[in-house]
Design a protein around this nucleic acid. Structure first.
Lengths: 193, 193
DNA sequence: TAATATTTATTTACCGGTAGGTAAACTTTT
DNA sequence: AAAAGTTTACCTACCGGTAAATAAATATTA
């Protein structure tokens, strides 16, 4: 098994996630991986190549989570919570890479090679809105604007993730996510005027 | 009036916001500003200097908005909307720089010189939570977790801003912000069980 | 006010260091 | 012997930064 390839990837993740794409040099990567430059070019073709391969791998892991089931029988608010918790767990596991992806996705357009992370957002949003439709049909949620409601859920999740990126260890973010979603769903729940 | 200083700043903004800090070279900046390198070093001391001066200026503009008043007499939900709209307008005006700040704030720690944008978040959050306290006292909002409610509002605002950054011109984001806040506040509003 | 001295602004030409990338030789595995 | 993997040594281009000379504006003095 060629572990040079893996060593290169690990080293690249370590450096890209700390110094960004432009802030990391090929020399640093190969040095950390205890190998030489032509090896990196042998396995990944270019600096851009190793970078994109890291991002692609991560994207796929997240899409996999969204394709899972989240207990169709339960209350939608609980399904949505579980969905968010699952993604949150993966997020914590890959926090560094996600910080990198985040800063590229929302960052200056030419600060790094283009990588389309949009598909994750889209699938995430669609998954949420489907569940909200069900909740409104079941009269679990009040009959509000469905897009707006889904947008709230997604934004809250993003908000927690960003907080954890910006201020790690400052709060218990799992708890914050739980609490905030609970409050949001309490607001969405159907009550009489 | 030395307009070389201004030209340098404009050129730097143009390039930093498109290519990031590490992706932009001092040579490019002075070339675009139609001057020479020692001039940049004369006015700003270093690449980091011109960069930080741009960020600092922007931060101050945002803090200024938060120190304004937003109609104490009105419904809190409307005050919060106005607050968000005001910040949103400034955001749109300085969208490029905010994208840059965002990607640095949430990005790899060593991808650019440190700049503390935390103060804006803090003041924004505190402003929101004050208003929510009032709304709950007035029985305009139900008596939920105040931190969670404030977090929802802030997240929704961030969500819209990020959408606009990632997918400019795809939607009417002012409308999205309006609609989403309305739905959120409808959820927060006090109704009988 | 005119000439001079001083400070401020700007340019030319350069520094050592490092960037991404590769040709070509060598070693190991198949 | 052929293929795959790895190394040494090198390429050109560019990086951030600066010394020193010069030009323009301002202050000082006769």
């Amino acid at each position: 098994m060629s572990n040079i390839r893996d060593d290169l990837k690990k080293a690249a993740i370590f450096l890209f996630t700390r110094k960004g794409y432009n802030g990391t040099s090929v020399r640093e990567i190969v040095e950390k991986a205890k190998t030489t430059k032509p090896c990196l070019y042998y396995y990944f073709k270019s600096k851009e190549g190793i970078y994109l391969s890291i991002l692609q791998e991560t994207l796929e892991e997240f899409l996999k989570i969204l394709s899972q089931n989240f207990g169709e029988e339960k209350l939608v608010s609980n399904q949505l919570k579980e969905l968010c918790f699952s993604i949150y767990e993966k997020f914590k596991e890959k926090k560094d890479i996600l910080r990198l992806i985040h800063s590229i996705f929302y960052g200056p357009p030419k600060s790094a090679p283009k990588f389309n992370f949009e598909s994750f957002h889209k699938v995430f949003y669609e998954t949420i809105i489907e569940k909200i439709n069900i909740a409104i049909e079941n009269k679990e949620f009040f009959d509000g604007d469905r897009e707006a409601m889904a947008f709230c859920v997604m934004s809250v999740f993003n908000g927690v993730a960003e907080m954890e990126i910006a201020f790690p260890k400052k709060y218990d973010y799992k708890k914050l996510l739980d609490k905030t979603l609970s409050t949001l769903f309490e607001g969405f729940s159907r009550r009489k005027k």
